[in-house]
Structures are given as structure tokens and as C-alpha cells.
């Protein structure tokens, strides 16, 4: 075997081996430690299977994810719409500038008491808070993306008499799309965080509620199973968005590759 190939195999083995070793280490340590706060990993896993597969999926996971999807969806649509308007008009950008700067600087959880005061503790409040918080990264990235459109393309469009919605659809949005996706990635992790906090502060169902309630009743293994579930959800949501981005932006990567050739 040539050395380069041996090295590649070694690297792959390392990449798979280290996570397995970490898991095995946790397993052995937690079984031996018999700690109250850190139950044995096998216990957590059986509790995970008992709790989440699939008994609580309908009552807790689906409502949580539905609120997340609604808030995130509203934020993306509103963020792209407002961001496009601000990106195209320097005057609008200056007028809205300080408001946007302030809005994105407010730490998101500080909006929860505001939402609870105005909208109560129902779904509307949670969706509203998720949407407001997720709005800023999408909006700011859209503004940057729209401002970064190649001026030659815009001039060409003008020469050919392409304007209005057609110009947005064919030139502005496609070239801003990579930036929009960057904003969506940031927003998605914020959405997950706000989903959990809003359920911890004001809810009677949802994953966040379940985790905090388990801790309060000292059901430690249940609490850990919820934490594991949130970790898995975070990973899967990120992976799903990355996959979508890869599909949607395939032309963009191809264009980049040809530019580099």
C-alpha cells in the first residue's frame, strides 16, 4: 500500500474512532461513577427510547417543531422582503438603519416578557418571538446580498428592458441567495434556542417544558433524554438546511468552480 493511501485510511479511522472512543468513555465512566446528576449512559438511552419513541412525539415534539417552522418561515419571508427593499434603496437603508441596528442588538430572550405581556402565553406568542428573533440575520444578510449584485448585470438588465419583478426574480434574488442562506443558518439555531426558552418560561407542553419539568421533579434520566433529543434535533435541522442549501445553490457552486478553473 502506498503511503498516501495508508494515511488516508488512518485519517478516516481516526475520524470514526475518536467519537466512538468519547462515547465509550462516557459509557464506562457514567456506569462506574453512579452519580446522581450524571446517570449511566445505558439508562439515559433506555429512558430515551421509552419516552420519545414514539409516545411523546405527537404531544410534545410535533407542537414544538410546528412553532419553530412557523416562526422561522415567517422570518425568512419577511426578512427577504424587507431586506430586498432596503438593499435596493440607499434612502430606505439610512432611514431604517438605526432601527435595524437596535432590533438585532436586543438579546432575544428579553423579548419573551414583552411577548407574554402582549400576546399571552399561547402559540401566537412563541411563534411571534421566534419570528422576530430570526428576522434579523436573514434581513441583514439579504441587504448585503442585494447590495453585492454585480452592477454589470443590473446595467445589462436595464439595457434589455428587464425591470420590476422580473429583475428581482432573475437577477437580484439568485445572486443574493448564497448570503440569504448564510443568514438562514444563523436564524435556524436561534429559532431552536427560542423554541426551547419559550417553552421553559411559558408552556404546558413541548420539549423545553418537558426538560425543565423533569429537572424540577428530579427525573434526571428523563431530563437527560430530553437534552439528547434537543441535541439530535439541532444536528438534524442543521443537516437538513445544509442539504437544501447544497441543492438550491448547486448552480452557484458550479459557477464558482468554473470561475476558478
Amino acid at each position: 500500500m502506498n503511503p498516501a493511501r495508508r494515511r488516508r485510511i488512518l485519517l478516516i479511522a481516526l475520524e470514526a474512532g475518536v467519537p466512538l472512543a468519547v462515547l465509550a468513555g462516557w459509557w464506562v465512566w457514567s456506569v462506574g461513577a453512579d452519580s446522581f446528576y450524571f446517570p449511566a449512559l445505558p439508562t439515559i438511552l433506555t429512558t430515551f427510547a421509552d419516552t420519545w419513541l414514539f409516545e411523546r412525539v405527537g404531544s410534545d415534539v410535533v407542537p414544538s417543531l410546528a412553532r419553530l417552522a412557523a416562526g422561522f418561515g415567517i422570518a425568512v419571508v419577511a426578512g427577504v422582503a424587507i431586506g430586498t427593499a432596503l438593499g435596493l434603496s440607499p434612502v430606505a437603508r439610512r432611514v431604517a438603519g438605526p432601527l435595524v441596528e437596535f432590533g438585532r442588538a436586543v438579546p432575544p430572550p428579553a423579548l419573551l416578557p414583552f411577548g407574554m405581556l402582549v400576546l399571552g402565553v399561547g402559540d401566537a406568542m412563541k411563534v411571534f418571538v421566534i419570528a422576530v428573533v430570526c428576522l434579523w440575520p436573514v434581513l441583514l444578510n439579504t441587504v448585503d446580498g442585494v447590495r453585492g449584485v454585480d452592477p454589470t448585470m443590473l446595467d445589462t438588465a436595464r439595457v434589455y428592458g428587464i425591470g420590476g419583478l422580473e429583475r428581482l426574480r432573475r437577477i437580484v434574488w439568485p445572486s443574493a441567495l448564497p448570503q440569504v442562506f448564510a443568514g438562514m443558518r444563523t436564524s435556524l439555531s436561534l429559532a431552536l434556542i427560542l423554541m426551547v426558552i419559550s417553552e421553559m418560561v411559558a408552556s404546558t407542553e413541548g420539549i423545553g417544558y418537558f426538560v425543565l419539568e423533569s429537572q424540577r421533579s428530579f427525573a434526571i434520566a428523563e431530563m437527560w433524554s430530553g437534552i439528547v433529543l434537543l441535541g439530535v434535533l439541532g444536528y438534524l435541522l442543521n443537516a437538513a438546511l445544509a442539504l437544501l442549501e447544497r441543492r438550491v445553490l448547486r448552480w452557484h457552486r458550479a459557477a464558482l468552480a468554473s470561475a476558478l478553473r
Binding site: P19, S189, L212
Partner: peptide, 18 residues
């Protein structure tokens, strides 16, 4: 790399009860 990629997306607030 794999360990980081798995730990990173965990929403930090999930650790509130812990």
C-alpha cells in the same frame, strides 16, 4: 471534526436544567 460537528448544533439552552 465529527465530535465538534455533533456538539456544536446542540442548543445551549438545552443545558439549562443541568
Amino acid at each position: 471534526r465529527a465530535v465538534i460537528e455533533f456538539l456544536r448544533p446542540i442548543p445551549s439552552v438545552a443545558l439549562v436544567p443541568l
